[in-house]
Amino acid sequence: MDRTRAPTPRRGCRCTNAKSKDDRSAHRCYDRIAPTNLNKDAGRLMGFLAATGRAFLIFLEATGRLALFTGSALSHCVRPPLYPRQILRQMIDIGYYSLPVVGLTALFTGMVLALQSYSGFSRFQAEGAIATVVVLSVTRELGPVLAGLMVAGRIGAAMAAEIGTMRVTEQIDALSTLSTNPHKYLVAPRLIAGLTMLPLLVIVADVIGVFGGFLVGVYRLDFNAASYINRTWEFLQPVDVISGLVKAAIFGFLIALMGCYHGYHSKGGAQGVGAATTNAVVSASILILVWNYLITGIFFSTK
């Protein structure tokens, strides 16, 4: 930005892009400040403020765009016609093909949890609590969070890449010209599949995770199998599992939303699609961690 330019006498937006009064209110402009005879420090301060404001406006714009996108996509999830073939395809992609990776993650998480808590808890003679610790940690936290993160890497990236490629090769425009709403055809099935499949995946992950703990407990740490299972059930409450499944549903929704949103708004060629993929995975992962805290707070905070 040229800060030595003489100030224009107009009020409101002073940017040179605005030619007329109407234009000024209509066009988007983040360069609202064109200071001149101010001394250097003030100029630097203004520059800093301008940059901050610009970043903030861009942030608001992105938030608004995401909110509109989410609203539109959600409304298409409940308004017919739905596309059963697309929903089924996405469900198989998300639910069935993620089983191996989620199962392995859960198995080793359960195993390491048993091992860790044994070495930790034996310091104060609480080894008996291991089964309970494993089942509570897995159902409440680690099942949904780790499954969510793994699926974010697997599915979020794939969605962003697929939809992004469709965007840059004009396939999304082609959908519109064939009287098919892209939000309904591409986004809604993925959201529905994410929302429904993640809880199912997490049920499997819970079982496998507890089983991993059981394996280590019984075969490595010499617990009695029957008493380990008893201890697993003893303190488990429905809310532990239910809270995990609610988390999973929300994580599934967030993964699909981020994948679709970033893919849908990707621009440029291969580089744009690559950036969209990265953004989808990173933003989904961060949102999972943030929402994990929020939902835990809603379910379990006593204060």
């Binding site: 090769t169 004009e170 396939q171 425009d173 082609a174 010209t177 064939l178």
Partner: peptide, 15 residues
Amino acid sequence: LHKFGMLFQGAALFD
């Protein structure tokens, strides 16, 4: 849009 058909530059077929 039912009235319209379009041939895209890169064909834009659904792969």
